[in-house]
Amino acid sequence: MDRVPILKIGAVLLVSIQIDLEDQTVLALQEDLADRITRTGARGVIIDITAVDVVDSFIGRMFATIAAMSRLMDAETVVVGMRPAVAITLVELGLSLGGVRTALDLEKGMRLLGVAVPGADGR
């Protein structure tokens, strides 16, 4: 089973999903993230899905679970980089991810979490 790496930038944990997610990998990621949030005191989690070409109900539910779990540990979650075809499909599937914050890309996600983006002049 592959494990998804979790990177730390200041008070934000960054998860960039680059593989075709297996259910076991998804469950391991939830546990790894919970552990890293408590150990680092992170205030934000960014899940980058730029490279993800399919989000089914299981993976979609993972986003909601991670967001709810992080919130209980005082961290905000933002899902960034959703492809247009994935967004269209998710809505038709019936999964609107109501409780999950999203941003178009990593930079916007960082700003949403109140993190200064280097070289972006605060705009």
């Binding site: 075709d20 259910d23 070409d53 399919v54 109900s57 299981f58 492809r83 499909t89 599937l93």
Partner: peptide, 29 residues
């Protein structure tokens, strides 16, 4: 992965490829 390859070979649009692959994922599970 197999459905993605077949859908691309059949000339489905990117959105339709994503839809059939997502449906296949639900049904396979």
């Amino acid at each position: 992965q197999l459905v993605r390859t077949a859908a691309a070979a059949a000339g489905l649009s990117l959105v339709d490829q994503t839809k059939i692959v997502t449906a296949a994922s639900e049904l396979a599970r």
